[in-house]
Design a protein around this nucleic acid. Sequence first.
DNA 1: TCGTTGATGTAAACTTTTTTACATTCAAAC
DNA 2: GTTTGAATGTAAAAAAGTTTACATCAACGA
Lengths: 248, 248
Amino acid sequence: MNRVEPLSAFSPRQREILALTERNGFVTIESLAEEFGVSAQTIRRDIIALADAGRLQRFHGGAGVTGQAETLRLDHGQKEQLSVEDKLRVAQAAAACVPDGASLFLDVGTTVEMAAKALNARPGFRVFTNSMRAALAFDPSRHDVNVIGRRVAGRDGSLVGEETMLALQGLRLDYALIGCSAVDAEGRVMDFDLSKIAVKKVAMQAAGKSLLLATPSKFGRSALSTIAMLSDFEQVIDGSRDLAAQAG
Amino acid sequence: MNRVEPLSAFSPRQREILALTERNGFVTIESLAEEFGVSAQTIRRDIIALADAGRLQRFHGGAGVTGQAETLRLDHGQKEQLSVEDKLRVAQAAAACVPDGASLFLDVGTTVEMAAKALNARPGFRVFTNSMRAALAFDPSRHDVNVIGRRVAGRDGSLVGEETMLALQGLRLDYALIGCSAVDAEGRVMDFDLSKIAVKKVAMQAAGKSLLLATPSKFGRSALSTIAMLSDFEQVIDGSRDLAAQAG
DNA sequence: TCGTTGATGTAAACTTTTTTACATTCAAAC
DNA sequence: GTTTGAATGTAAAAAAGTTTACATCAACGA
């Protein structure tokens, strides 16, 4: 599956279209035609060639990055896993718990990333995170943003390992926003990734208050190993109205 | 310009559409309708509301992230600045200069990011970079990817400062892929950003061989301060045929 | 209970995009 | 000096997406 045609199989203009698509996520045929000074039909042919080779995905009026918009067509199994609405609600409630100007640790994960975007709209945070995606959610001209760690662990942009731990241990922060894979019946907050668990534990020690971001689907399940107990968190944010109100 | 309507102004489904769009870059109306179990018309209305509020951009058949696909409509001033084709040619030639399995430093910049994507298609590099975007271009399951630094400096995902310098000084690498803003008539390789210049200098010391990635438009211009002389580079890659051949 | 409001679905008219087929150009090959 | 083929442009037909207008339904307050 990883064997793709070399870029040299395409014309310079086609390679350029591919690069533009990758940089922008989506490009319109009209704008490409204008940009290259050729007809829309020619661009269309280029895009057809690139799509046939699997390098990008065609849409009405343009083309997008492969495997992204397509991913949206979730089968029903993934649906529960995604639950974007729940995550969004949790992320916004969590952001509401954090006062302006606080120093924060942000964990790895999509829910925390959403919280990062919400926080970015407000002024002046000091942010430390081992998630490159969370870091990129902030405008560094308006916030003090720091990435903690060296070794990139996954496509999620997470950093784990010794450097991450050491750097975190030297910090003293107001809040840690922590995600998890599961919360079992006994109140154990758990995750599947041991190296990430280690980071979460150290972050919680470094922070005065820890907030748990967990969608309702996480509760009543189990995972590989324990991060902490529910009672170790200042607040558990599952997106229910009560907690959102309590947060505000 | 930064004042936008709060997310609470939108319905839960609209917020979810927004989140999905931001995560995917582009979403189709058809897939959203299927996903939410409502008619395409309803999704269309949601998207119109979100587009009116400036939260996303409408396209035929879907919606995309604001300010991205739009950015593609370059005015003629930006055109030269972008010169994607040139950058792509330079990036591919640069990637061809690096042998499989080498240890690399990757600089900040779009040209270097393109080189990173080209390198990712090949097996087993040891990569060090102060650009989060370059780091994210690699699949960490197939490469050893490391980000050097802590403080995020700009929306380009660059890391600069003391931590970056210290970590780089301890490294010994095969190749450094360096970008620049200008190369003047005397062969001075220059840049506008002093903190990035400092990082580039240290990286070149840490690497056995330094490759300069510079599109033809960079030559004959000047910038704020000097990174090094052209002669300090093992190879200067401007995308011309000669050098590409020499590289292969 | 009644009427209003807001959200949604449906369908026909309209617009845009895509497809298909064919003409043109230009350069390499014979 | 044709011939050939690849790349491109043009135009009409087909397909897809959008708009507009109207019907439905449930929630809410008088």
